[in-house]
């Protein structure tokens, strides 16, 4: 645990969805590519849009808007797929637009409020202050894996519909 803290990079890739800015720890970011053809895979949770072919590798992609239960929006030429790599699994994350890569000092990162009720934030590992703006730093692990149960329940619903 300590070791992880010591090597924890404080570079973040920020992207925006609607008005909000989110940050991803750069060490999990493999690649940023423009939006491309997504092959539909049936029976997935609604935020999984399908798979893409990234130089011969087949990578599942998730739409962050759908993941955060925001209204969907047409993809345009600013839409990007950020390819994250967690424990050797690559996953593409579709975001409205990528903003920049930033250094955020650790003392500029505030703990997210801890609520247990409705306010509980599922994906946020911290809140970073950049000049006058703030960016919500996402916990990649949770972004990708949080609530597998949720995914499963989605699936069973879909199966029942089908």
């Amino acid at each position: 645990m300590n070791e992880e803290k010591a090597v924890k990079s404080n570079k973040y890739l920020t992207f925006s969805v609607d008005k909000e800015v989110f940050g991803l720890d750069i060490k999990h970011v493999d690649d940023i590519i423009g939006i491309q053809d997504i092959t539909l895979v049936p029976e997935q949770p609604d935020y999984i849009k399908g798979v893409i072919n990234l130089r011969g590798k087949i990578i599942p992609t998730m739409d962050v808007r759908a993941r955060f239960k925001k209204e969907s929006r047409e993809y345009d030429d600013r839409t990007c797929i950020v390819v994250l790599n967690m424990q050797n699994t690559s996953v593409g994350v579709i975001v409205d637009r990528v903003v920049e890569v930033l250094d955020i000092d650790e003392d500029q990162i505030a703990e997210p409020p801890r609520f247990s009720g409705e306010y509980q934030s599922h994906y946020i590992s911290g809140i970073g202050k950049i000049n006058n703006e703030i960016a919500m730093l996402l916990d990649c692990n949770k972004l990708l894996n949080y609530e597998q149960i949720e995914a499963l329940s989605h699936l069973s619903e879909e199966v029942e519909e089908a």
């Binding site: 895979v41 049936p42 029976e43 997935q44 949770p45 999984i48 798979v51 087949i58 990578i59 599942p60 699994t89 690559s90 996953v91 990708l144 995914a151 499963l152 699936l155």
Partner: peptide
């Protein structure tokens, strides 16, 4: 298919 995806029966 990536393990990340839910297994689809028949595929």
């Amino acid at each position: 298919l990536s393990k990340f995806l839910t297994k689809v029966n028949g595929i």
